[in-house]
Design a protein around this nucleic acid. Structure first.
Lengths: 359, 359
DNA sequence: ATGAAAGCGCTAACAC
DNA sequence: GTGTTAGCGCTTTCAT
């Protein structure tokens, strides 16, 4: 390059300067930088990738959705990647698209990436491409067949379990579940957590109503549930569905939390401000992304080292005003301590940790 | 490459096949494809980029936020880019980061992109890098100095204007505004639309309360507004802030829409399901992204052709239950037709177009 | 601490 | 319709 000529050094020395290698005298480094500055020089990533075989970029396969969870995860991934010195290539696979993940991976591989993140994949049978780079699967236990596959962010069962237990602890006999779409691993995780909590206490498992993560589907689920009559507690697989659900309950004349308690999932930013403020479980998106990328980058840079097991993130249940003890049971054999206390504490407690008191 | 050898053709012919060029006999094409298949061959994007000078990828500079608007826009961009045959490189600039956009653009240029999208930038003075590719600025009128800059998605004023007019049409004397952060062009656009609507009718312009797009900040704004006393209508710059605002009003004993009407912005998926269902303005994210990318791709592929002016997307006001006519004015000179009709129509109309009736 | 030579895998430009 | 030759801008390897 002419930077070399202008600085009066060899091409290799310029390369050394721009890669921060040692063994360049301060004087030479200065001259090179100066020449580059003057010429408006910029390293050429394609040439570098071609010569070195490394691209310093990571590909992400995501579902193109603006849902709070997936969007937050993507942001966390980008940030973690950048901090590790990697650029990001993103390909979205629309839900229901044939060969979605496989096609996306293939396209990333052609473009050139040092590693791949498959974020919250949905089920589509065994995916296997001729992948020669490490793959991180986020939020799906071993959904991807391959040699250099590492997994992270599969702690959702625990969180779902905690949400369900919260309701049982309040005294509810059982807990209904409004699930996410069955093809999503994220939905199945939460379903399993919910089920595990019920099984652990020997409670009934009511039929599951499946939504599609949207408030609209939560609303539809709610209309279905009000028909069943004996619902006192519901765990929704995300906050949006919980919000739709609460609306359906309200329209049916059921108050939350007096008549029905509702727990959401995600702790999305609005959940503290809807009516009633939503009890929910916080998802540690950032920690998951960071942890996962640490693993991936390690697999890229030190293919030998032990994968260092992912640490379970802490469970954070955020109790607000959408959950309370159940009303005195309808006509149980031997009614115990009716109304007063239980209703008192149940009646729309101010705001939980919700709206911060500003003054 | 050995694909060429195995197929018994020249390297160039292989190249022709993989670029879908004409002048390859069906027979040869078949042999090449077969050989490639057998060898697990995959074109090398870096080499292609180096040799051709084109990368077939577009860089996006975005703010790393999971907010519904920006996230939706990013998804639209990805999809439009992919449809046009371009891959995406994404760099987020955290708000408040020094030299954010300039640094991000520089890094994209090094990686290699054929064009750049700056999505909903925030103000940070004049940004100018040695950019030699076309730049699309989304949602910011000429925020970027440069030769090959094209702009799209600046129709927000119209939408904000429509939202404000809706409230005035209902009979409100004036409309308060909860704005987004002043450094965002998106916030200033909406502010201007709101102001234009008031000016056009010669109404007062109440002091603006500024939030940060979050429901929390909308709540804080609401607490501020309830102190003012004479607020009957508020236009919030996004749905999340509207939700927080409504909560603050409710806690102060003000009912929506009976006492105060509220309009949001975005038509986020939950807005139809909160209480009350939110009247809001739909943002045509997909259309904006598609239109913008059409312009950008044209600037990349046909640098000469006329930029073909962006068509204004249609204004879609979604009227739900958070807006109504004001109550009879407190003590106006000459009261006109009090209570009955106006209050009747104001009282929490069912759901607007909100929750779909399923059965 | 610096340089020379070779070549990464592809496409451009021109033959034939 | 197909092949040849050069070279994109770097890094690699080996010298010095």
């Amino acid at each position: 390059m002419d930077v070399a000529r202008l600085a009066g050094v060899s091409q290799k020395t310029v390369s050394r300067v721009f890669n921060g290698e040692r063994y360049v005298s301060a004087e030479v480094r200065r001259r090179v930088l100066e020449a580059a500055e003057g010429l408006g020089y910029r390293v050429n990533g394609a040439a570098r990738a071609l010569a070195s075989g490394r691209t310093r970029s990571i590909g992400v396969v995501a579902l193109g959705t603006a849902l709070y969870g997936p969007a937050s995860l993507l942001i966390g991934i980008e940030r973690a990647a950048r901090d590790a010195g990697y650029a990001l290539r993103v390909v979205n696979t629309l839900e229901g698209e044939a060969g979605g993940v496989a096609g996306a991976v293939e396209s990333l591989l052609e473009q050139g990436v040092d590693g791949i993140v498959v974020s919250e994949p949905i089920d589509e049978g065994e995916v296997s491409v001729g992948v020669d780079v490490p793959v991180l699967v986020l939020g799906a236990p071993a959904a991807f067949g391959g040699p250099r596959v590492v997994v992270a962010g599969v702690g959702a069962q625990l969180l779902a379990c905690a949400a369900t237990e919260h309701l049982l602890d309040l005294g509810h006999q059982t807990v209904h579940h409004v699930a996410g779409p069955g093809r999503w691993f994220a939905a199945r995780d939460r379903l399993e957590g919910w089920r595990a909590a019920l099984v652990a206490r020997g409670r009934d498992q009511p039929a599951v109503v499946e939504g599609d993560w949207s408030a609209a589907s939560g609303y539809a689920a709610g209309r279905e549930l009000v028909g069943e009559g004996d619902v006192t507690a519901v765990f929704a697989a995300n906050d949006d569905m919980a919000i739709g659900l609460i609306r359906a309950l309200a329209e049916a004349g059921l108050r939350v939390p007096e008549d029905v308690s509702v727990v959401g999932f995600d702790d999305s930013p609005v959940s503290a401000y809807v009516t009633p403020p939503l009890t929910t479980v916080r998802q540690p998106f950032d920690a998951v992304a960071r942890e996962g990328l640490r693993l991936l980058v390690q697999a890229i840079e030190k293919p030998d080292a032990e994968p260092a097991p992912a640490s379970d993130p802490p469970v954070e249940l955020v109790v607000r005003a959408s959950t309370a003890r159940p009303r005195a049971r309808k006509a149980p054999a031997g009614r115990r301590r009716a109304a007063p206390r239980s209703r008192g504490s149940a009646h729309a407690p101010p705001t939980g940790d919700g709206p911060p008191v500003t003054d």
